[in-house]
Design a protein around this nucleic acid. Structure first.
Lengths: 365, 365
DNA sequence: TATTGGACCTTGTACGGACAACATCCGCTT
DNA sequence: AAGCGGATGTTGTCCGTACAAGGTCCAATA
């Protein structure tokens, strides 16, 4: 025989169902504690215990001298649920779009969005995860921080698994983890960029890649594969790798040096549009014209790409849509109860031709 | 004489201070309920009430049959608290920086950040406020949506007042409300822009302002004042007003028409850098060179301002710092218990001279 | 008519007692 | 030596009572 449910819990359940049925609407006043005690054949203290918990949960509001009321506002009985996003950089020119897509989609479905940013620092990532998990969460969207490095915060992700909180990654995935990922096919993007340039006749293409995340590493991989498949040489000095910390100086300086040197490259492939715009400046400084003297390809199709005089040729991916998709996917996982049926979504990169690319100058052929 | 504090609250306070002193460390077992009742001369029920609240707050953990213990782990003794930000547009090129400043500051102090965006739509603003308020919130940072129009969501803000949830506004304030605001002195910014150009000798300056928010309206106000104080004429056709919905087309078309017409303006003052970059494109299309034929001034000192070939002269304000300050101010208000001592913070705009401005061409003098 | 005081409602605080459910320990039994 | 059972101590549930404090209403009062 099953154990008897405590009386106060029975009352609590009864009141809850009444509220869900609509028999007690928001704003309604409940019978007084004495009355309820009478009705349900229990003491006032027991009634108080039941109602106390409902007050704690925000479903009731007690006012001394007046009575106890069903809470207003609470649009639906199913309370709003919260999902979190951990980004590397809120102010980065790409991520706001992804966040915007996700936010709009989530709000529509009644979810709330907790946002935090790691600033590309793994210690901060730990703080963010800690913060996120310290309150009930329905799901998480994570953009890995320095995904090419290790994952010192593995324990937190395992904790998520244990708590059956679904999560998915965006842009990249930590290798050790099994979860869905929404990303662009970066390797193919790197390939496309270099392949187009090689097909235009370029033979000295410099590549600039941020390689502390897997996105950059994969773009570089594709960049190399394009050279191999086109039987083009790729001297190592034509590949510039840099980290988040170095991004302000190193690639710009390297580009200047290469353009001044002998056998200067006839084309640049840049990790993203932000860098491409910077390198345009390097070309201007040396009075090289783009694209006649130097072709430039960026990544991301950011708003920067069309702000410049020479509109940038770039590799695009559907940023807003990725956010929307990630949100939808996560909501589906939540509804399924955390069954992370690892179905990835990989977007194909799109070559967007504008005016920063053309065949190389004749003398360089 | 002051009213006596309830006994259970006295006990609660006592236990709290003991825990803060370190007299009771995490993991320690407290005396039993009977013992405490004895020590403090109260009944066991009263002790239970005090401890019940501490359990609710996560500071104690009760285990039937064993005892009551001080909670382990939660280094964040004061449980994490949530504050919300309602922006007009997450992906806008300015706001991410403000959000980033606020997020970093808040996370440091153990607050969590709920983010949502109105997309410049007052219905969405209502949804956002509803969503924010449906769960316990410690405070709100709001960027008003179309602040020049009315405020149909006034009821929600009054509700915030009633619930003693402190809030502050950023960029602008709805006129009907009393709350601190963190903003730039837009009127002065508009004045500076026009005044500099007038002092350079320009006499036909066109101004483009988004006037569905107060920021734009104030910049326009300053723009007009500069003309008055410099005794310069300002025909109405030289002022272009537009709304969020029109921003993609109207100002660009108007600029093209003005530049093609007789007595074309020798300078543009633009609502923001985004528009300034667009209008640079209009000038290029008519083969006018900037700044020789046309000076251009933007607002915001966004990253766009230096991406272009001609680096934009612009009116800057400390975006990141504004976010940080807003966060700090809000936290102070929370600690004071919602005493919204309406102390505004107004940042002075800064004239950042780059290469898109110079004296007007001689023939136009 | 306007005000006040009190009756009568509500919830808040506090006390007392009783038994149930669970955990631990210790001595007794096997 | 191992296992069982009960003593003992803890929190959980439930009851009853009493008075305080806040709110509402109405009738008596100025």
């Amino acid at each position: 025989m099953t154990k008897a449910e405590p009386k106060y819990k029975q009352l609590k359940r009864e009141l809850l169902t009444q509220m869900q049925n609509g028999r007690r609407k928001p704003g309604d006043m409940l019978p007084s504690e004495f009355e309820l005690a009478d009705q349900f054949g229990m003491s006032r203290q027991t009634v108080r215990q039941a109602m106390g918990e409902l007050v704690q949960e925000g479903l009731l509001r007690r006012v001394q001298g007046k009575g106890t009321f069903v809470t207003e506002t609470r649009t639906t009985a199913t309370d709003l649920q919260t999902i979190g996003i951990v980004t590397t950089s809120i102010s980065d020119y790409i991520f706001p779009l992804i966040v915007r897509g996700a936010e709009a989609t989530l709000r529509e479905k009644g979810y709330r969005l907790l946002l935090s940013s790691t600033d590309n620092d793994k210690d901060r990532e730990r703080e963010c995860l800690e913060m996120m998990m310290s309150h009930p969460l329905k799901g998480l969207i994570i953009e890995p921080t320095k995904s090419a490095g290790g994952n010192p915060n593995l324990a937190y992700y395992l904790d998520l698994d244990q708590r059956a909180i679904p999560y998915l990654m965006i842009n990249e995935r930590y290798g050790e983890l099994q979860c869905p990922v929404v990303k662009m096919e970066d390797e193919l993007g790197g390939f496309l960029a270099a392949d187009h340039l090689l097909k235009l006749g370029h033979r000295r293409i410099a590549g600039f890649f941020k390689t502390d995340d897997l996105q950059g590493l994969n773009r570089l991989k594709g960049f190399i594969r394009a050279h191999r498949e086109n039987r083009a040489e790729l001297p190592s000095r034509q590949v510039i790798q840099y980290t988040t910390e170095e991004k302000a100086e190193k690639p710009f300086a390297a580009a200047l040096a290469m353009l001044k040197g002998a056998d200067r490259p006839t084309a640049f492939v840049c990790y993203n549009d932000e860098l491409a715009v910077k390198l345009l400046e390097a070309a201007r400084r040396l009075r090289l014209s783009v694209p006649e003297d130097l072709s430039v390809v960026g990544f991301d199709d950011a708003s920067l790409a069309t702000a410049t005089e020479v509109k940038l040729t770039t590799i695009a991916h559907p940023k807003l849509e990725m956010g929307v998709y990630a949100a939808k996917q996560l909501m589906a996982m939540i509804e399924q109860g955390g069954a992370s049926s690892s179905v990835d979504m990989v977007y194909e990169p799109i070559w967007v031709e504008r005016h920063s690319t053309c065949p190389p100058p004749a003398e360089a052929m």
